[in-house]
Amino acid sequence: MRSDWPTPNVPYLKANDVCCVVREPLLEDDIPIEEKPLRAYSVAILRIVDAAHPAVNEFGLYAAEPIPPHSFVCNYIGRVHLQTEYPDSDYAVTYFGEYALDATHTGNEARFINDYRNIASRPNVAFDTYKDVDGMIQVGVWSLNKPIVPGEEILGNYGKGYWRARGVKGVLGPDWDDSWD
């Protein structure tokens, strides 16, 4: 367990908890394969104290060392299940196909990545599915085309659909901009 883990009621995981029989995609091309182990960067989970931040008094994930552009930051770890089981989860990302990876009840530091909207002009990381060197399907968090400096909040893009499903209207910012790659 991390020393900065702030949620004792949410068990910390080092590997995904697969709760169902997962049928892998038919085409191997659908998921890229990493040929060598990936180096994760050091990150810190911190309480947000800035009153202007939309998640004030909650937690965020911050770079604890410089993270170069186009680098693996860490894996998003949680429980693998069918997307239809928990369609309204605030902590679910697409695993692949009909499966979600959900960090609501168990997870790792990546569950503290906030959406960039109303915090920054763009995200600095993206989520992407890949197979690790052991052939296990993972969801990685990857820095985009700009470095992330120590102390900078790591911000993703939840997508407009996430906000619309929660009744938030007028959410600013694109779902994706090719200049972020």
Score class of each variant (00 low, 15 high):
residue 1 M to H: 08
residue 1 M to C: 08
residue 1 M to D: 14
residue 2 R to V: 13
residue 3 S to M: 02
residue 3 S to V: 13
residue 8 P to T: 11
residue 8 P to I: 13
residue 10 V to K: 03
residue 12 Y to R: 00
residue 13 L to R: 06
residue 16 N to R: 00
residue 17 D to Q: 10
residue 20 C to G: 05
residue 21 V to I: 11
residue 24 E to K: 01
residue 24 E to R: 03
residue 26 L to F: 14
residue 34 E to R: 04
residue 36 K to N: 12
residue 36 K to Q: 12
residue 38 L to W: 07
residue 41 Y to N: 09
residue 45 I to K: 03
residue 46 L to H: 09
residue 47 R to A: 14
residue 51 A to L: 11
residue 51 A to E: 15
residue 52 A to L: 06
residue 54 P to R: 00
residue 56 V to H: 05
residue 60 G to T: 06
residue 61 L to C: 00
residue 62 Y to C: 06
residue 64 A to N: 15
residue 69 P to D: 04
residue 70 H to E: 15
residue 70 H to Q: 13
residue 72 F to P: 08
residue 72 F to K: 02
residue 73 V to G: 01
residue 75 N to Y: 09
residue 80 V to C: 02
residue 80 V to Y: 04
residue 81 H to W: 11
residue 82 L to V: 11
residue 82 L to F: 15
residue 83 Q to S: 14
residue 84 T to S: 10
residue 89 S to I: 05
residue 90 D to I: 06
residue 93 V to S: 05
residue 97 G to S: 14
residue 99 Y to E: 14
residue 100 A to V: 12
residue 104 T to E: 15
residue 107 G to K: 03
residue 109 E to R: 03
residue 109 E to S: 02
residue 110 A to T: 08
residue 110 A to E: 05
residue 111 R to A: 06
residue 112 F to W: 03
residue 115 D to Y: 04
residue 116 Y to P: 07
residue 118 N to L: 11
residue 118 N to T: 12
residue 119 I to C: 08
residue 119 I to H: 10
residue 120 A to R: 06
residue 121 S to Y: 02
residue 122 R to L: 10
residue 123 P to S: 02
residue 129 T to V: 15
residue 129 T to S: 08
residue 132 D to T: 09
residue 135 G to V: 01
residue 137 I to W: 03
residue 137 I to F: 08
residue 141 V to R: 06
residue 142 W to Q: 06
residue 144 L to C: 00
residue 145 N to F: 10
residue 150 P to M: 04
residue 152 E to Y: 03
residue 154 I to L: 00
residue 156 G to Y: 09
residue 157 N to P: 09
residue 158 Y to I: 04
residue 159 G to N: 09
residue 162 Y to K: 00
residue 162 Y to I: 01
residue 167 G to N: 05
residue 168 V to I: 15
residue 169 K to S: 12
residue 170 G to C: 07
residue 171 V to S: 05
residue 171 V to P: 01
residue 172 L to C: 09
residue 172 L to G: 07
residue 172 L to Q: 11
residue 174 P to W: 10
residue 174 P to H: 07
residue 180 W to L: 09
residue 180 W to E: 13
residue 181 D to Q: 08
